[in-house]
Structure formats: structure tokens, C-alpha cells
Amino acid sequence: MVPRRGQGHHHFMSHRNFIWICLLPLVVVTAAFFLLPMAQLLAVGAGGSRGVSAYLAIITEPRYRATLINTVVLAAATTIATLVIATIAGLFLQRHRFPGRAVLIAMLTFPLAFPGVVVGFLIILLAGRQGLIGAITAAVTGEKVVFAYSIFGLFLGYLYFSIPRVILTVMAAVQKLDIGLEEAARSLGASPWAVQRDVVLPALGPAFVASGAIAFATAMGAFGTAFTLATNIDVLPMLIYTEFTLAANFAISAALSIGLGVIAWAILALARSMSGGAVAAAG
């Protein structure tokens, strides 16, 4: 029997202590396997022959800078293309009901959690030496088109990776749109295009910012796809990987990966402050 009066209470754990015990394992795991390693990464980055200036090498060293620009341009192109594609498809799917719609949505979203390596392989099957596009072009024009290992192949890979999750975000945002706003605009005489331009797209702004930032940050750091396709292309993740494993240049690879992390994090933080929602990159 629980003691009726208060004397027994000190045998029990207070709620406050219980909450601390709940949090403790997470704090320990995060400190040991995330914060401490990240601090070590920071220290190693500054501990090479360049010292702290290693952190500037990503901008000052022409080779690294070229790679950075390459990566940013590629990520930006991926983001814009994904947003355009996902908006058209997402608006269409959320605004129309037709037979087969559910199947179509499933087809567009099931590659959501494919790892980058698998996406890379799928691009090889599409545009590689034994790829479908090569076979078709060879049959039609007599010339086999192969671009899986070019920057365009990588672009397609990133696109493949980003489209499902951006479509999901756009569809969710469209669902939340107040149809009354569109009807009001039409009652005021706006044409369908004007309604899209003046009402729908502005209302989707936060969703664009959020999902665009995720697509951008993910493309910046995507390693799996690049690892499969980008044997000859300079993108930041591949540069870091080769500096680390082949050149054993720990300080530079640490500094570069910190730079990459900061860029990805900053983009997401900026987007989050603009859109007010939760924004996170995906592996």
C-alpha cells in the first residue's frame, strides 16, 4: 500500500529527476558520438600545415573554389528544376481526381528512401553504356548517346532523388490552400493563369522555400550518387572523399567537410527562419 501520508515521499524519485534520467542517455550519446567528433573534426581541420587558414582554402585555393562553384551551380540547378517539376505535378495531382491517380502518386513518391548509390545505378541503367537512352538513340539515329557519367547524369540523379520528397511537400501545401481564395480571385475576374500567378504560387511560397532548401542542401552533400556517377566530375563530396582516402590529407578534408556542413546547415537554417517550418536535409 502506498503510504497515505507524506512521510514516504522521499523514497520516490521526483518528477524533475525522472525527466533528467530520461534525457541523460540522449545527452551522453549525442555528446560522445556527435559533439565530441565534430569538435575533433574542427580541431583536425585547423591542425594541418595550413593552420586555421585551411578553413579559407575552400575559397582561396583555385581548385577547391572551382569545385565549390561547380557543386553550388549543380545544386541550384537541381533545386530549380525539381521545384518546377514538382509544382506542376503536385498541383495537378492535388487538384484533380481521376482513375489511377493513387497509383500515379505512389509511383512518384515510392523512390523516397532510395539511397544515393541506388539512384546512381538507376541513372546508369537509363543513360549508361548499356542504358535505355543509348539503345533508343542508337536505333533511331545510329549514334549511341551516353551521359550517365557526365555532369548531366549527376544532375539527373539528384533530380531523381529530390522529386519525390518535394512533390510530397507541394501536395501537402496545396491541400492546405484555402480554395476560397481562388474562388474570390475568380469572382473578381482573374483568369486561371492570373489566379495561379497571384494567389496559388504566392501561397505556396513557404513550401517552396522549405523543400527547395532541403533539395539544395541534399544535393550539396550527396555522396552516394556522386560516388557511383561522378568518377570524373569535381563535386565537393567527391573532393573530400579523395582528399581523405587517396591523398590522406586529413586536415584539408576535415576543413572542407566543415565548410560543406556549414553551407548545408546555413541554407536550411535560413529557409527555416523564412518559412517558419521544420526543414531538414535527407541522406
Partner: peptide, 13 residues
Amino acid sequence: RTDMTAVPIEQRH
């Protein structure tokens, strides 16, 4: 007349 100030709710009955 029993001081319950430090007793958590689950033991105040």
C-alpha cells in the same frame, strides 16, 4: 495538519 508541501501529487492521495 500534515505538511504536504514537498509531497508530489502521486502521494497526496
